[in-house]
Design a protein around this nucleic acid. Structure first.
Lengths: 210, 210
DNA sequence: AAACGAACTAACAATTTTGTTAATGCAAAT
DNA sequence: ATTTGCATTAACAAAATTGTTAGTTCGTTT
């Protein structure tokens, strides 16, 4: 069987892709295996042939997504060689951009993943270990700069929660934020551009000495 | 039929109460009318007798909750007689306290309400009208103080998004934030106390002149 | 070419879930 | 006391949804 005639990967991929969309949009309970199969262009039975249960299929999606959590924080804030202010500015911007490129991820994580502590506990702990290691490093960085009188000695954990809150919420609550800003901006994307700058400013201002 | 023997309100209330819990916990798709009836201590048929469909019952809960949105913003930030800084400090604290007392509301709104624009559009618009009126007033307040050189001239809309983001996110992502702060705090509530202060500081610092 | 095995299909089964209906109880009105 | 009407129940019906199975197709192996 050569690669071109191997439909397995194709079909499996298509189901996974359709499943991600369905689970993201409707959540586990709202998702229908029949819809997923239809969207993937395969018969309903194929879904069960490859993944046996809805649970299994869901698990595959969750596994893939939860690992992104730690990775994005690390890749955004991980460059300890930059000057602190630049490190944080870049972190906020990269994190914002990642969320903007994965707008439905936060809702999925909050609703579907965090609601299943038993099934996702290990993966979550793993992501947290990565983040905590980074936070230690960042806190050192902050403390050193603060000791030199270059910034306030803020808590790195709190700062990260600030950043994630500011960056994530406008996307999670997009429908209401969209209505709220209404006609003030040309379109939602131009609002988001401003929002990103605003978040960077808010965070950097918090670091500044009084 | 005297009031004591009128079981109608009792039963209806009990169903509504149980429904709110079920819908909050599991969302519309995950909620089961049978579970709601059982939790309310009534037969399954009674639920349909009073509300006919799951949709109707859900609509009643949504209607009640969506109206809280505008109200809380207004009651938190509405006091225009206070000095600006005090007005904002009080607003942030009151909004935080409200969310803390209704921790599952944001998730419900984001997941269930915002995902149903057709059914909730009018209610949402109504809440937004209240908020926008308040924002106009707050912006004037800010502009006046800025003109006197007492604060930065920040955009009131952006400021409100900042506040809501900072206050809401830690509750929506509570399971992961809980794990993340781990052993650093005695318990989650003592973390939340600090978090509230932190948010007030973050916002007020944003207003300060450089 | 015959056997083999993985991918696939159509039909079906089992369960869950929402919603209905006919009958009953019971308090208040006449 | 009889009637009236709402509240309630148990049983049932209908639909939706997940999962299974027996059999088919088709490329590969021997």
């Amino acid at each position: 069987m050569n690669k071109d005639s191997n439909h397995t990967q194709d079909t499996e991929e298509r189901i996974l892709h359709a499943a991600e969309k369905e689970f993201f949009e409707k959540g586990y309970a709202g998702a229908r295996t029949a819809s997923i199969a239809e969207a993937a262009g395969v018969t309903h039975a194929m879904l069960h042939y490859y993944f046996r249960t809805k649970d299994n299929l869901f698990g595959r999606i969750v596994e893939e997504k939860i690992n992104m959590l730690g990775d994005i924080i690390l890749s955004a804030f991980g460059d300890g060689n930059l000057p602190l202010e630049e490190r944080i500015r870049q972190g906020v911007e990269r994190h914002f951009d990642f969320i903007a490129a994965n707008r439905e991820l936060p809702r999925f994580i909050v609703n579907e993943v965090l609601a299943r502590p038993k099934q996702t506990g290990i993966m979550k702990d793993n992501a947290l270990r990565i983040v905590n290691k980074l936070l230690d490093n960042l806190q050192q960085d902050i403390d050193e700069h603060a000791a030199k009188g270059l910034c306030r000695r803020v808590n790195a954990q709190m700062l990260l929660i600030d950043i994630v809150s500011l960056n994530v919420f406008p996307f999670m609550a997009a429908p209401i934020v969209k209505s709220a800003i209404g006609s003030y901006y040309d379109n939602y994307d131009s609002f988001l551009e401003l929002r990103k700058k605003e978040n960077v400013e808010t965070i950097l201002k918090k670091l500044k000495l009084d």
